[in-house]
């Protein structure tokens, strides 16, 4: 009994990737895992939710269609306000990114569900995708003028020796911070949730076993757990928003590199 309890209490257990179907291709282990499954769930939910809203497409929208349209307008406004009208060509990408992360984060809030975005591989891949698009599109559209990004005009000549390395480092830091921010937030948040939940459960068990005073601490831990749940819901939405809006800001640099 104690062993199974250990497994349940392990705050890292929720991040473990487990194979559901084995799949080996050319020496790579491409097994369908629980991580892939929850990724599939969020993708399916997004397609169903927005697909239904779009296919009904009523002039006077139902509630769910209204919510889908608010989501559409929200992302469209975000892209327009940070990257301008030209940024709208990236609207489908930002939309996909935002709702992929948002749904993954929210599904992660369901107890026992796997949080796709709590893995650095996933957030890192998304961040690299974003920065690759910025670099490729920036070079494609602006040619060498894209490198003006690293040398903002209007500074005295000598300052550039200092300014350019700083700009280069800050540009390289972008995908790293983009990936780490989301990953660390989701990881830390879920560890905290698990810790407080198991802590409360253990304290209640101890109280039932006889040490009544521990029950009082258990109530405190439980209250903290509830508050953390609310906080994590906020973080889940906020981090998706931050990921998407930073993507827009970086895309804006690709569209208009000379600040």
């Amino acid at each position: 009994m104690n062993l199974s309890f250990h497994q349940m209490a392990d705050p890292m257990h929720q991040f473990e990737v487990q194979k559901l179907f084995d799949l080996q291709v050319a020496g790579f282990d491409l097994s369908f895992t629980n991580a892939a499954f929850y990724m599939l769930v969020s993708v399916a939910l997004i397609i169903i939710f927005f697909g239904l809203a779009a296919s009904r497409g009523k002039l006077i929208p139902s509630r769910s269609q209204s919510i889908a349209e608010i989501g559409y307008g929200f992302v469209a406004n975000m892209v327009r306000s940070t990257a301008g009208e030209e940024g709208l060509k990236f609207f489908p990408f930002v939309f996909t990114l935002f709702f992929f992360v948002f749904f993954a984060n929210m599904i992660g809030m369901v107890p026992y569900a796997f949080t796709t975005t709590s893995h650095l591989v996933v957030t890192g891949a998304l961040a690299l995708l974003v920065i690759s698009i910025v670099i490729v599109y920036g070079l494609f559209k602006n040619g060498l003028k894209f490198f003006k990004l690293f040398a903002p005009s209007g500074a005295p000549f000598l300052i550039y020796f200092l300014l350019v390395p700083i700009e280069v480092v800050s540009f390289i830091a972008r995908p790293i911070t983009l990936a780490l921010r989301l990953f660390a937030n989701m990881l830390a948040g879920h560890i905290m949730l698990k810790l407080f939940a198991t802590f409360a459960a253990q304290l209640f068990a101890a109280a039932i076993a006889g040490t009544a005073l521990l029950g009082v601490v258990g109530v405190l831990a439980f209250t903290m757990g509830v508050a953390l749940n609310a906080l994590e819901l906020l973080v889940a939405g906020l981090q998706a928003y931050i990921f998407a809006i930073l993507t827009c800001v970086y895309l804006n640099d690709a569209l208009h590199p000379s600040h």
């Binding site: 990737v17 799949l23 790579f28 491409l30 097994s31 895992t33 991580a35 892939a36 591989v121």
Partner: peptide, 17 residues
């Protein structure tokens, strides 16, 4: 699980896009 994660992310994110 890195190859598996990247593989399924690419497929699912691509399909979603």
């Amino acid at each position: 699980h890195f190859p598996s994660q990247l593989f399924w992310l690419a497929i699912l994110f691509g399909a979603l896009y």
